[in-house]
């Protein structure tokens, strides 16, 4: 078979038009998902069963089902209920982008809360005892000792999740969204050249991922500045 470079040259700019939407899906659901994750984390470590238990159920449900199924349930399933169509949430749920962002947020929130919990559990017990011995309150210990150390510990796993989220955004193309993958699928449908188009699409995602890796590398060096021996 032949590899049509001119086709790639033509379709690359088209696919790149979708990068804005991909970026928007990633950033909005990444930020909202992180906030959700912090909330879930606080419920998980609250020591109160009536907070811990619902959070555990939530995490189980969203980690236990495919994200594609979650997107379909939200996009195709929820509008069947009249009370949802009548509610304020309809403004978000009537748009496929809103549905995709909601699904990605709910999904990543479940994963990230467990990542953060791993970080919190990794903070040495002795450090918290030192805080107690100095008279610090539970809240003060959490803010000034646990949070900064847990952030450093959780970062590698967290960056992994953000990269995974980037690639999950491609699933938005299944509900008519014209992100990079959505545009690529349209081009393939027109040109019958899946190999060239999807290869170029893969490379765009790789470049995007490379940028994210670099970004997290910088954050990791900043948060870990205290763990290097040289002054």
């Amino acid at each position: 078979m032949s590899f049509d470079f001119s086709l790639i040259a033509e379709s690359l700019p088209l696919m790149l038009m979708g990068i804005g939407i991909t970026f928007k899906l990633l950033v909005i659901s990444g930020v909202l998902g992180f906030c959700l994750a912090v909330g879930l984390l606080l419920m998980r470590i609250s020591g109160k069963w009536y907070l811990n238990f619902p959070a555990q159920v939530y995490i189980y449900v969203f980690r236990g089902t495919p994200i594609l199924v979650q997107i379909f349930i939200i996009y195709y399933g929820l509008p069947q209920f009249e009370w949802i169509r009548d509610s304020v949430f309809w403004a978000v749920l009537r748009e496929p982008t809103g549905c995709a962002i909601l699904a990605l947020t709910l999904n990543t929130g479940a994963y990230v809360s467990e990542i953060l919990r791993g970080g919190v559990l990794g903070v040495g017990k002795g450090l918290l005892e030192a805080g107690s011995a100095l008279g610090m309150s539970a809240r003060q210990k959490f803010i000034y000792i646990t949070t900064p150390i847990a952030a450093r510990l959780a970062l590698p796993a967290y960056s992994n999740d953000v990269i995974s989220l980037l690639k999950s955004t491609a699933l938005a193309s299944t509900i008519t969204i014209a992100d990079m993958t959505g545009i690529a699928r349209t081009i393939v449908a027109d040109t019958y050249a899946p190999y060239e188009i999807f290869m170029s699409l893969a490379i765009i995602y790789m470049i995007f991922t490379f940028g994210l890796q670099k970004l997290f590398g910088v954050i990791e060096r900043y948060l870990g500045r205290y763990s290097r021996r040289e002054g």
Partner: peptide
Amino acid sequence: RREVGMVFQSFNLFPH
């Protein structure tokens, strides 16, 4: 705790 200071075997300085 305000009146009692403590020193631990493993120092427990805040590493960050």
